[in-house]
Design a protein around this nucleic acid. Structure first.
Lengths: 105, 105
DNA sequence: CGACTTGGTAAGTGGTAGCTTACCGTTCGC
DNA sequence: GCGAACGGTAAGCTACCACTTACCAAGTCG
């Protein structure tokens, strides 16, 4: 299981998508996330754990609070992978069009 | 539920990730996918249905077979979204570094 | 020290996602 | 037309995942 697979699997949950999206705007403590979401604080903690384990989120202690934020490095990896898939799909798509073109004559 | 959310949720399953990855290399019939994967053909059909519903996969009838392939357009949407998240995270990350720099003096 | 804030962990539960087998529809070649 | 190849759908089962409540640990401030 590569990192990318784990990342995509982690992002399979809409709540985690929402959390990562919010954290991409800047650091946020757990409580504040829980206030903005329709789930309990422990649930948010569990989601953050998952996101952290796969490298999509960073955290640091700040007094009694713990600030989480999106990890640009992890996102870069995911982005690069998806880019590869997209490029290949585009290539395959273009190839097919070329073949059809060929067949018309 | 936007398309992007649905796409990410669909990609939450490793088997679907594998399927989309294979389809990015070119069109493939259902049976061939099932042969290459450790699940039954109906299971593959169900996954393809999900991927198609969210716009990540295209299909066309070809005689008795049905060819599936990755949809470059859908992938482009997903790519663009992830790009946005990444850019924001990078921005937020840079901002924080700048503040720390400031505080040192 | 002692109260309060903040958050991670444990245990338990309900819902659902993914799988299988069985069945049926469609297309092609003889 | 008939049989074979190919694939979608139905029904049912199991396992896991997201959630909740309850509890505990750590830091802060009076």
């Amino acid at each position: 299981m590569t990192n990318i697979t784990a990342m995509l699997t982690a992002l399979g949950d809409p709540m985690r998508q929402s959390i990562l999206d919010r954290l991409s705007h800047g650091p946020m403590p757990v409580g504040q996330l829980a206030d903005a979401l329709p789930i309990s604080r422990p649930a948010v903690s569990q989601h953050l754990r998952v996101l952290k384990d796969v490298g999509l989120v960073l955290d640091r202690q700040e007094g009694t609070r713990r600030l989480y934020q999106a990890d640009p490095e992890g996102l870069a990896l995911l982005r690069a992978h998806l880019d590869g898939v997209w490029v290949r799909a585009l290539q395959a798509f273009g190839d097919r069009l070329a073949i059809e073109e060929e067949e018309e004559h």
